[in-house]
Design a protein around this nucleic acid. Structure first.
Length: 834
RNA sequence: GGGCGAUUAGCUCAGUUGGUUAGAGCACCUGCAUGACGCGCAGGGGGUCGGGGGUUCGAAUCCCUCAUCGCCCACCA
């Protein structure tokens, strides 16, 4: 306990109590508890390579309120934090920050200088040096995040922190992958893949976004035996890639052509004309050219019509330098080495000169697929990639994963349809390999045959005990490093896994799967997955996929999906608009409790504006907690005694109702409704009950004892009920009269004291009328009243009689009369003193 | 094109099975030195519940439709 200060303040509470919680191990997880006693939370590992923003604190503060509530309910809360530091965002940040670029062909030299300060330029560094820089920068970012989380007051056990690139995570990710591989759930195949030409990597369906782009239909003539056949295309530069034309089987205009062939303009390549139901008679001219590959429909046609591959665009987005073997004639040299954009411009000129372009290109706007973090449209290239089955090609698996979605308890429930839509809309398996560097390596090697060719069909895998491995620097089992790349030797798979292939295993990483069976048994499957709505299709879904394969269960029982944070004008915050609000200045201006309050006022799943006015209200509430605690303690609350007075029992009955309402709301993860119930009662308590009872409490005797006992009970209850939200102010006020942390106290249970809620309500209403009379007369609330006459229903008057003397005290009323009748209060003020 | 959510006072939001005169906070206005709180306290004004239909004795609440905002999805010829 510490003395009540003369002037309570919120300033400095974060620093004071964060240090104390850390020193006392207030939130340390006790791993001796049984599974039934534990509440485990699969905290989202934030991407540390980004800047901190309000969205970062919003969901975490809400989850922390739940965590603190569960802890007070007696659960041992398993609440680890992770950092998502692996992957492309980190690489990009490192490239920009240090001015470097990873060149895996450079051999690692431990003595080579590597930048250690911000720089610009494109200094090439070895793969290992690049990875070291990634580790270095993320370590700094992680400190900034931890500082923010500690200031905000997250009650995580910081000794349980993991990072998605650390040894433990790499071991889990590789082990899970190898088990997927052994069971046939992971496989590699050569197939057309969406490809980002800037990042030089394949990307997955979940990472796509459509962007509206300006384009134009070009009406181009193919030569048919019975005259020209016009197609309309937005990508005329792909004419050298054309492998067929396609029309709808029911389209009478083109039926005569189907089964025959036409010749491409400029290059004079003979291509067949096919029929396929996917061809839309309404689009363009109704007959389309199929190229390998212009878009994903091309891929479908190519596969279903069994067409050849004629790729001209390389992985860097440029047309290949050498003339493709299927182009016997035509102006290939005009296109070689050009980007798709440059080639389009040139080919339009060539088509115009040859007379194969009819009319002017017709401008349109249409959606084009981009990598969500990319700058140029995706191309489709054929490459060998690793996949994990996700139901995109398998109806039984899809149904099983949809059933997992049913089994999961969603808060709020409407978020579940996003999962269903995503799973139903999958059109392929999950592509997990990335041609990048800072990630978990695909843990396989391949034998090199005696002729120097690579045997991809017989991958060499490590034993689980040796994980994590890096096939780029570790030799394959049974081989010596000197055999790397040699005939009869081996090569390592050069790819890394996508970030989601690791973070989808966050429950397994956090709970110690295989590495710590004892912990795993006590924490998995977890209780709660809190997360944002935009990553249902990635993080949530992929986590369900992995747990379904590995454990035959859900990874957790419940999921809470938080809303989106909008700017004060309810616009989406984005860097380009420049309306991004950063949390640290707000934490300093209003205090952590105010920010926590703001976050918890945002209902589950509801988009919420970053509104300073709400933070101000939270700050006011926190200050009030300090002040009313000081006052109530100054009245001598807690001196013991029995609650005998009807007014006191009435207040406690109302308090019990508020707590009961908050309890059921929190059990359903509705922290907003809980906060509202307690907050509403709290102000009623301060403004009405404390005012009515303070006179009696100053006196002595049974009435005073009753008041003091009731005040102590209420104060203890309110401090505890507000603790999940106002973590600091409640802890501070609790320390003035109790030992131990309020956050380790039991959540309030009913006081068990019967009372009639009407007594306090009737007294508060009558007091309000007396106050109104004084305010309208523009006199002090302490001004004496000669006579007040309260009339009301018999029931309310009967209730009021129990609080008659308190009302007289609080209103400074000389003569108070109560009578049945029409509701009303007549107040005769004493004449003003001269 | 499809889906989900939102639309209530100037602003931010409650309003949980349809039921007396639709609530709160902020802001605004008018007051008040009061045993803690002036980062306070008391009181007040302010809303045809997005528009239009419908069901019902009765609709902010249920149904249909339209509009606006946000998010998600969709095969880009």
């Amino acid at each position: 306990m510490s003395p009540v200060p003369d002037k309570p303040t919120l300033d400095g509470l974060e620093r004071k109590w964060a240090a104390r919680w850390s020193a006392d191990g207030t939130f340390t997880f006790d791993r001796t508890k049984r599974r039934a006693e534990i509440f485990s939370i699969d905290t989202p590992p934030p991407t540390v390579s980004g800047s901190l923003h309000m969205g970062s604190v919003f969901g975490y503060a809400q989850t922390d309120a739940i965590a603190r509530y569960r802890r007070m309910r007696g659960d041992e809360v398993f609440y680890p934090m992770g950092w998502d530091d692996n992957g492309l965002p980190t690489e990009r940040r490192v490239q920009n920050f240090y001015g470097v670029r990873c060149d895996p062909t450079i051999p690692y030299d431990p003595d080579a200088p590597i930048p250690d300060a911000p720089g610009d330029g494109q200094t090439p560094v070895s793969r290992q040096a690049f990875i070291e820089l990634c580790h270095k920068l993320t370590a700094e970012d992680e400190q900034a995040f931890e500082h923010l989380w500690r200031t905000l007051g997250l009650s995580v056990d910081w000794s349980l922190t993991y990072a998605t690139i650390d040894d433990r995570s790499r071991r889990v990710a590789q082990r899970a992958f190898l088990r997927n591989l052994a069971r046939g759930e992971a496989y590699a195949t050569d197939a057309p893949t969406l490809w980002d030409i800037d990042f030089q990597s394949a990307v997955a369906q979940a990472e796509l976004e459509d962007r509206e782009q300006q384009s134009a239909y070009h009406r181009v003539a193919f030569r048919g035996s019975a005259g020209p056949v016009f197609i309309e295309t937005t990508r005329p530069e792909l004419i050298p890639s054309c492998v067929a034309l396609v029309a709808n089987p029911d389209d009478d205009r083109y039926r005569p052509l189907v089964g025959g062939s036409v010749r491409t303009p400029l290059f004079d390549v003979e291509v067949p004309v096919h029929a396929h139901p996917l061809a839309d008679p309404e689009k363009g001219s109704g007959i389309a050219m199929i190229c390998t590959f212009g878009d994903t429909t091309d891929v479908t046609w190519w596969r279903e019509l069994d067409l050849p591959v004629r790729t001209v665009i390389q992985r860097d987005g440029r047309f290949q330098a050498t003339r493709p073997e299927w182009l016997a004639t035509g102006p290939w040299e005009e296109l070689a080495g050009k980007t798709a954009k440059q080639a389009k411009r040139r080919i339009v000129e060539l088509l115009t000169e040859s007379g194969d372009l009819e009319g002017e290109p017709r401008p349109i706007t249409h959606p084009v697929k981009f990598f969500e973090k990319g700058d140029r449209p995706l191309e489709i290239v054929t490459s060998r990639q690793w996949y994990i089955r996700n139901g995109g090609r398998d109806d039984a698996l899809r149904a099983a994963l949809l059933a997992r979605g049913e089994e999961l308890r969603w808060h709020p429930p409407f978020m579940k349809v996003r999962y269903d839509h995503w799973v139903n809309g999958l059109n392929g398996d999950w592509l997990i390999s990335r041609q990048r560097f800072f990630g978990v390596p695909i843990p396989v090697w391949y034998p090199v045959r005696d002729d120097g060719t690579v045997d991809h069909d017989e991958p060499i895998v490590p034993s689980e005990i040796d994980l994590p491995v890096d096939p780029s620097s570790d030799p394959a089992p049974g081989y010596d490093e000197s055999q790397r790349g040699k005939p009869d030797g081996f090569i390592g798979d050069p790819d890394v896994m996508d970030t989601w292939a690791t973070s989808s295993l966050s429950p397994q990483i956090a709970c110690g799967w295989i590495d710590d069976d004892d912990l795993f048994e006590r924490t998995f499957p977890m209780d709660l997955r809190p997360q944002g709505p935009e990553i249902i299709r990635t993080w949530l879904f992929s986590s369900v996929v992995r747990a379904n394969f590995e454990h035959g269960s859900l990874p957790w029982r419940d999921t809470t999906i938080n809303g989106w944070v909008l700017d004060p004008d309810r616009k989406k915050m984005s860097k380009s608009i420049g309306n991004v609000i950063t949390p640290m200045p707000l934490l300093e201006e209003f205090g952590a409790d105010a920010i926590r309050y703001w976050a918890c006022r945002g209902a589950p799943g509801t988009d919420t504006a970053a509104d300073k006015n709400v933070m101000k209200v939270g700050r006011r509430l926190a200050i009030k907690v300090l002040n009313v605690s000081k006052f109530v303690l100054g009245l001598g609350a807690g001196a013991g005694g029995e609650v005998t007075e009807a007014l006191d029992r009435s207040m406690l009955a109302q308090l019990d109702a508020a707590v009961a309402s908050a309890t059921s709301a929190l059990d359903a993860y509705d922290y907003t409704r809980a906060l509202d119930a307690i907050e509403t009662f709290f102000w009623h308590f301060c403004d009405d009950y404390v005012e009515l009872v303070k006179g009696r409490a100053y006196n002595e005797g049974a009435g005073a004892d009753s008041a003091k006992a009731a005040l102590a009970l209420a104060l203890s209850t309110l401090q505890r009920a507000l603790a999940p939200f106002l973590a600091y102010a409640t802890e501070e006020a609790w320390s003035w009269w109790k030992d131990g942390s309020v956050h380790r106290q039991p959540w309030p249970s009913p006081t068990g004291i019967d009372g009639d809620p009407l007594v306090l309500d009737a007294a508060a209403d009558a007091l309000a009328q007396v106050r109104k009379a004084k305010t309208e007369a523009k006199v002090s609330l302490r001004a004496p009243v000669d006579e007040a006459r309260v009339t009301d229903t018999a029931e309310r008057i009967a209730a009021l009689r129990h609080a008659e003397s308190d009302l007289r005290d609080a209103g400074a009323i000389a003569l108070l009369t109560l009578a049945d009748g029409e509701p009303g209060v007549e107040v005769a003020l004493a004449p003003a003193a001269p």
